[in-house]
């Protein structure tokens, strides 16, 4: 029972409601960092990691500090949700950056420049808020965070693969660069619409 609910969340976050091309979250890195496959992979890994951590921490903050029904204070502080979430994500990203720099320098070299960008990636704040809106429990929130990150990485890698080939394609002059990337994204969104027929 529990496992089937988790499975639904995984499939829905990766395919049916893909964060980038169905929910339109995290478009800036999707268009900005998808020019090369290896940098796309680095960005994707960093996002999976931060999204998982962020879902965990924001769920704990919301349920133990803000939500009046379960909070240790008993006050209704839900109006502070946006501020506390974005601040904890900013702190988290900074912290992760420092830890990785000290402990795994090779990983830091690979992810380094992408980490600061993630604070303003709306997909991370988006997944935290969605976890609360959908009333997910602790485990479901973590699973949703991981699968949202995987979904992001999946479409980022697909896009990077296509754009590397587009470099050599004969594209009309006015459509070069950003416009053709959006057309590719549109085709990808058409393909992902097929998943919306899945009934699980």
């Amino acid at each position: 029972m529990e496992f089937s609910r988790l499975f639904v969340i995984i499939v829905s976050s990766i395919f049916i409601n893909n964060f980038v091309i169905v929910r339109f979250l995290g478009l800036c890195p999707y268009i900005g960092v998808s020019k090369k496959l290896d940098s796309a992979l680095g960005m994707g890994m960093a996002v999976i990691f931060v999204m998982t951590m962020a879902s965990t921490i924001t769920w704990l903050i919301y349920n133990f500090l803000l939500n009046p029904a379960t909070s240790i204070f008993g006050f209704d502080l839900t109006f502070l949700r946006t501020i506390t979430f974005i601040l904890s994500i900013a702190v988290l990203v900074q912290f992760v950056e420092m830890v990785i720099k000290k402990t795994v320098p090779t990983l830091y070299k690979a992810l380094g420049i992408y980490l600061p960008l993630i604070t303003t990636n709306c997909a991370v704040l988006g997944v935290s808020i969605l976890n609360i809106n959908e009333n997910y429990n602790f485990l479901e929130s973590i699973v949703n965070g991981i699968s949202a990150g995987i979904g992001f990485t999946l479409v980022l890698l697909l896009m990077a693969g296509i754009r590397q080939r587009l470099e050599f394609a004969n594209v009309p002059k006015s459509l070069k660069g950003m416009p053709i990337a959006f057309i590719v994204a549109g085709c990808m969104a058409l393909a992902f619409l097929g998943f919306s027929g899945l009934k699980i």
């Binding site: 950003m178 416009p179 994204a185 549109g186 969104a189």
Partner: peptide
């Protein structure tokens, strides 16, 4: 009004501006 429409619309508008 589905997601693909959004991508196609902005792509063509950007292309028009470039043109």
């Amino acid at each position: 009004i589905l997601p693909p429409g959004a991508f196609f619309t902005i792509a063509l508008l950007m292309g028009l501006i470039n043109l």
